[in-house]
Design a protein around this nucleic acid. Sequence first.
DNA 1: GTGCTTGCAAATCGTTTGCAATAGC
DNA 2: GCTATTGCAAACGATTTGCAAGCAC
Lengths: 158, 158
Amino acid sequence: MQKKTYCNYYKYEREVLMKTYNYLLSFNIKPSVQRIAIMDYLMTHRTHPSIEEIYLALCEDIPTLSKTTVYNTLKLFVEHGAVQMLTIDEKYVCYDGDINLHAHFLCKKCNKIFDFPAYYNEESLCTMKNDGYEVEEVHQYFKGICPSCLKDNKEEIN
Amino acid sequence: MQKKTYCNYYKYEREVLMKTYNYLLSFNIKPSVQRIAIMDYLMTHRTHPSIEEIYLALCEDIPTLSKTTVYNTLKLFVEHGAVQMLTIDEKYVCYDGDINLHAHFLCKKCNKIFDFPAYYNEESLCTMKNDGYEVEEVHQYFKGICPSCLKDNKEEIN
DNA sequence: GTGCTTGCAAATCGTTTGCAATAGC
DNA sequence: GCTATTGCAAACGATTTGCAAGCAC
């Protein structure tokens, strides 16, 4: 009989697991089964999930997972710059495994968040730096209605 | 003896009161003592206050003010486009009486929010519109350390 | 064994809700 | 008197905290 360890809960292929394992190490984050699972979820689900979503999705694979661990882990990831925290939705914080600069669009109807390239010029940044502000994060948030919801709206009216 | 009405609680000069009164009307918002007080607070305090701050500040003038009213009123203001809601801070929502497009900088140390001109180009917006997204709000958030906190940091080290 | 990680349960706190009291026409 | 606004108290829900158990070196 297999020894019952956390690792056995984790069913991903070794190769994928190792890739995420090393990714965490590159941010100076000590990997654990939970941390690998959470990071892997963020890498493979570019949906800007909330804590709740991540927790529910991973509960299946890691039955003992606690929400506290998801909170702690994401806090750690953000501190180490491996993940960015999005405050676009006023109700809850979302997380993005893509740390490259890009804009976000929140649909006010379906609450989904969409990625867009961030074409922004450096002027704001220069003004701040000249004024003595140390800028660590740049966020560009757009809010409105996504095409899918606009379509639904029209159908409802007809 | 003066009749005890809400209006008597309100000590602002008539002129200021009327200006805010009319400002609310211009957004199709029916003015009330509470609404005028809250809008006036936002106009005269460009500190991007939270609900709590507004509530505490106005309690003095309007002792019967309830936090629910502050919530309801700000929700109403945002719906009518008289005020913008900032989701820059993950802990709580802040409000800005200045509805013109500008960027915000949040100091991670003192949690103060600073205004900056928003030099942004239209490319992101065009991409979204071409893709069928209906953009209603544009937010530019920067996070880091403000000059005052940077100075404190250096002093602590020395 | 030691130190870090995890996870439960309780606490916290910003926000919302239900509903009765109040204001203002 | 009617309708909208206000305000209290309770509920809600996301997040944090304290602490004990578990894990890995």
